[in-house]
Lab assay of single mutants.
Amino acid sequence: DESNKPILLPNESQSFERSVQLLDQIPSYDTHKIAVLYVGEGQSNSELAILSNEHGSYRYTEFLTGLGRLIELKDCQPDKVYLGGLDVCGEDGQFTYCWHDDIMQAVFHIATLMPTKDVDKHRCDKKRHLGNDFVSIVYNDSGEDFKLGTIKGQFNFVHVIVTPLDYECNLVSLQCRKDMEGLVDTSVAKIVSDRNLPFVARQMALHANMASQVHHSRSNPTDIYPSKWIARLRHIKRLRQRICEEAAYSNPSLPLVHPPSHSKAPAQTPAEPTPGYEVGQRKRLISSVEDFTE
């Protein structure tokens, strides 16, 4: 099969070098950035008060330690540790928490760990991170309901609301924008112990962030949302095809390698009803078989 044979790379090609550099910018793992907010007593309706908090309760602090690993920003190499735009020179604080497994990295933009500057009256330095995160974990210690939209931002799609209760338990629920209701189930609340709260809140936030990324990708319907490693695979396959075309153009005697095509017509299947918005969006999480067989 010609399409699977190794090909020689061009010795000097600026377009090839640019493509390789672009490939280096696509990590081999999925990345997520999640905002974390603490809401104190009497702050449920005040964005400024929430963003001005420099610490929270003892249970909130224990919750943070379970979310991930504490890292010092100045020691991080952005090409190895995903920071979601946090500055490593102290502009966004000294520490944050991050978490990773074999296929993804997540960083938490924690408002109480970011510096509260006197010259920044409206807390814009914090909002440029927190307001651009799709998902926020809100530790609501106010005793009042927290409403979506209290923290203004164009991309605040989903809130994971943590409400501490007695007996070391917590109520965990989801809020989302109306255009996200087909992807996020907000109907079920959970009672979770303090011990298990970081794991549950983190998983709910990661799932909500993946759904938000799919939702946000609708602005470019021709580019369905893939995982990062599938995006790398697609980029490599496009690069291979372009090299083959350039080689055939410079030397017409060489065969032009095309991806294999299936001449056999697909079997006719009964027509199915058109899937609704929710089903269609969830299918976009699934990769096409052509990603692996071309």
Rank of each mutant, 00 (worst) to 15 (best):
E2V: 08
P10C: 15
P10W: 11
S13I: 07
S15C: 13
S15W: 14
S15K: 07
S15L: 12
F16I: 12
L22P: 07
L23F: 05
L23M: 05
S28K: 07
Y29P: 05
T31W: 03
I34D: 00
A35D: 02
Y38I: 00
V39A: 02
N45V: 03
S46R: 04
A49C: 04
I50P: 02
L51M: 06
S52N: 11
N53Y: 00
H55L: 07
S57A: 01
Y58M: 09
R59F: 00
T61P: 01
F63H: 00
L70A: 05
I71L: 07
K74D: 10
D75F: 11
Q77F: 08
K80T: 06
L86F: 11
D87E: 07
D92P: 08
F95R: 04
Y97Q: 04
Y97F: 10
C98W: 15
C98V: 15
D102Y: 04
D102E: 15
A106K: 01
V107R: 07
L113N: 04
P115G: 04
P115M: 03
T116W: 06
K117D: 09
H129E: 07
L130I: 15
G131I: 15
N132C: 14
N132I: 02
D133F: 11
F134N: 03
V135I: 01
S136N: 03
S136E: 01
V138T: 03
Y139V: 01
Y139W: 02
N140G: 00
S142D: 02
S142V: 01
G143H: 06
F146H: 02
F146W: 13
L148D: 10
K152M: 09
Q154R: 14
N156P: 13
V158R: 00
V162K: 00
V162Y: 01
T163N: 05
T163S: 05
T163Q: 14
L165T: 02
E168A: 07
S173N: 06
S173Y: 07
K178V: 13
M180Q: 02
E181L: 12
V184W: 15
D185H: 04
T186W: 03
V188F: 10
A189E: 11
I191T: 05
V192F: 02
V192G: 00
D194K: 00
R195F: 05
R195E: 11
P198I: 00
F199I: 04
A201G: 01
A205E: 00
L206E: 01
A211E: 01
S212A: 14
Q213F: 06
H216V: 07
S219E: 13
N220I: 06
P226I: 05
A231R: 08
L233K: 10
K237N: 15
R240A: 12
Q241C: 04
Q241H: 11
R242V: 15
C244Q: 12
C244E: 13
C244N: 09
E245V: 08
A247M: 14
A247T: 14
S250G: 10
N251V: 13
S253N: 15
L254H: 15
P255Q: 10
P255S: 10
L256W: 11
V257A: 13
H258V: 13
P259Y: 10
P260S: 14
H262S: 14
K264V: 12
T269A: 09
P270C: 06
E272H: 12
P273L: 11
G276R: 07
Y277W: 12
Y277R: 15
V279T: 13
V279P: 14
Q281E: 13
S288P: 14
F292W: 10
T293D: 10
E294M: 08
